[in-house]
């Protein structure tokens, strides 16, 4: 028995938008994709909603991501999130800079690793991650361990480079 759509929306919408925002860096685009995803759920109500919704959303991201226009827009956003020229002290970073660095670090991951990490951040169980991404359940732990390690190392590496440059 599928949940009424209103409840589906109430329960998953914010989580989906947050995951999409972290995935794309673009709040508006995240909202658009979420709307499109729920519209598809209206047409074909899913039996196992959370993995279904997130899988459809991630597919939409991948499809759109291939367009060059999107790439350009993302670069613009990166720049918008960077602080204005000048003086950030070595040890302190303002939020915009920190956000940009985390995003860069996330981009260093493979698509699968990144998606697994973001789904975990939305409270998905290993079973749900496996279902959403089409992974074997036994592979989820390894995927997450690799993703977490890479994220942290990429982030630290950026800090080191920026330190060295200044």
């Amino acid at each position: 028995m599928t949940a009424p759509l209103a409840e589906l929306f109430a329960e998953y919408h914010e989580s989906l938008v947050r995951m999409l925002y972290r995935r794309t860096g673009d709040r508006d685009r995240a909202e658009e994709i979420a709307q499109e995803t729920f519209a598809r759920a209206v047409a074909a109500p899913p039996r196992n909603p959370r993995p279904w919704l997130f899988a459809v959303a991630l597919n939409l991201v991948r499809e759109e991501g291939r367009k060059a226009v999107r790439q350009e827009r993302r670069l613009v956003l990166y720049r918008a999130e960077q602080p204005e020229a000048a003086e950030a002290a070595d040890e302190t970073m303002d939020r915009g800079e920190r956000i940009a660095r985390v995003r860069e670090a996330l981009d260093a991951l493979s698509e699968r690793d990144r998606e697994a990490l973001l789904l975990k951040a939305e409270g998905f169980s290993y079973d749900e991650i496996a279902a959403t991404l089409g992974l074997a359940r036994g592979a989820v732990g390894t995927t997450l361990s690799r993703a977490r390690r890479k994220l942290v190392l990429a982030y630290r590496a950026e800090e080191d480079t920026k330190h060295a440059a200044s």
């Binding site: 759509l5 209103a6 929306f9 919408h13 914010e14 938008v17 947050r18 925002y21 972290r22 709040r27 909202e31 979420a34 709307q35 729920f38 519209a39 209206v42 047409a43 939020r95 920190r98 956000i99 985390v102 995003r103 670090a105 996330l106 990490l117 973001l118 951040a121 361990s145 993703a147 977490r148 390690r149 994220l151 942290v152 982030y155």
Partner: peptide, 28 residues
């Protein structure tokens, strides 16, 4: 690994969802 996990979580949480208008649910 526990420390790594915690740091990874912290980094992701830096990406907070910015404020936006309330969403409208799509209907057919």
């Amino acid at each position: 690994e526990q420390d790594l996990l915690a740091e990874s979580d912290r980094l992701i949480e830096v990406l907070e969802l910015p404020e936006a208008a309330p969403a409208v649910m799509p209907v057919r």
